[in-house]
C-alpha cells in the first residue's frame, strides 16, 4: 500500500489540541474531517474505534495524540457532514463514509444502469467484490456500507432488497 500523504497540519502540534477559538476550531475540524476521510479511503476501511490509538489520531514522531474529546468532536463533525455514523450509544464505534451514503447510492445506481443490471438480481457480495465492479470506487467496500446505500435507493424506489438464506440480494429498476 502506497504511503499515505499526510497534510501539513498533521505535523503542526496545535492540530492535536481542540482549539477554543470558534473560528480556528471550525477550520481545524474541517481539516480533520478531510484527513479522516482520506485516511479511511486510503486504508479502504470504514470502522473506527475512538479509543484506539491509530496513526490517524497519534503522531508518534511529534509525540502528540488527539485527546478523546477531540476525537469525539472530529467524529461528530464527520457525522454532521454525513461522512460518519455512530454504531453504539456510547459513541465509541463509528462507521466512516468517505463518500456520503447519498453519494454511494448514486454511484452504485449509476454503475448498475451503466452495466445493464436493470431488472436483474445480484447479491451484495457481487456488488462489492464481484468481477463486474473491479475498478469501481465501491469495490471491496464494507458490505454494511453498501447495504445502507442500497436501503437509501430502495426508499427512492430505485431498487428492491431481497432476503436470501444467508445473504441479501438486490434488484435494480
Amino acid at each position: 500500500m502506497a504511503d499515505f500523504d499526510w497534510p501539513w497540519e498533521y505535523n503542526f502540534p496545535p492540530f492535536f489540541t481542540l482549539q477554543p477559538n470558534n473560528e480556528t476550531r471550525t477550520r481545524q475540524l474541517t481539516v480533520w474531517n478531510n484527513l479522516t476521510r482520506n485516511y479511511y479511503k486510503h486504508r479502504n476501511q470504514s470502522s473506527l474505534d475512538i479509543n484506539e490509538d491509530s496513526p490517524l489520531f497519534c503522531n508518534n514522531a511529534l509525540k502528540r495524540r488527539l485527546p478523546t474529546e477531540g476525537r469525539l468532536a472530529v467524529m461528530e463533525h464527520l457525522q454532521g457532514t454525513g461522512h460518519a455514523a455512530p454504531l453504539d450509544k456510547r459513541r465509541t464505534n463509528w462507521q466512516v463514509y468517505w463518500h456520503t451514503l447519498d453519494e454511494w447510492a448514486k454511484i452504485i445506481y449509476d454503475w448498475s444502469q451503466r452495466t445493464g443490471q436493470t431488472n436483474s438480481v445480484c447479491t451484495i457480495y457481487e456488488i462489492s467484490n464481484g468481477d463486474n465492479s473491479v475498478g469501481e470506487e465501491f469495490h471491496e467496500l464494507d458490505q454494511d456500507v453498501v447495504l445502507k446505500a442500497l436501503k437509501l435507493l430502495e426508499e427512492q424506489g430505485k431498487c428492491e432488497l431481497m432476503l436470501f438464506d444467508d445473504s441479501q440480494g438486490v434488484k435494480f429498476f
Binding site: 501539513w8 497540519e9 503542526f12 502540534p13 496545535p14 492535536f16 489540541t17 482549539q19 477554543p20 477559538n21 473560528e23 480556528t24 477550520r27 481545524q28 481539516v31 509525540k63 502528540r64
Partner: peptide
C-alpha cells in the same frame, strides 16, 4: 491573541504552548 485568531494553542504533557495560527 487566541481570541482574535492570531495564535493557536498546543496542550500536551509538555505544557501549554502557543503557535502562530496557521489554520486560518
Amino acid at each position: 491573541a487566541e481570541r482574535l485568531g492570531i495564535v493557536c494553542r498546543d496542550e500536551s504533557i509538555e505544557g501549554l504552548r502557543f503557535y502562530p495560527n496557521l489554520f486560518l
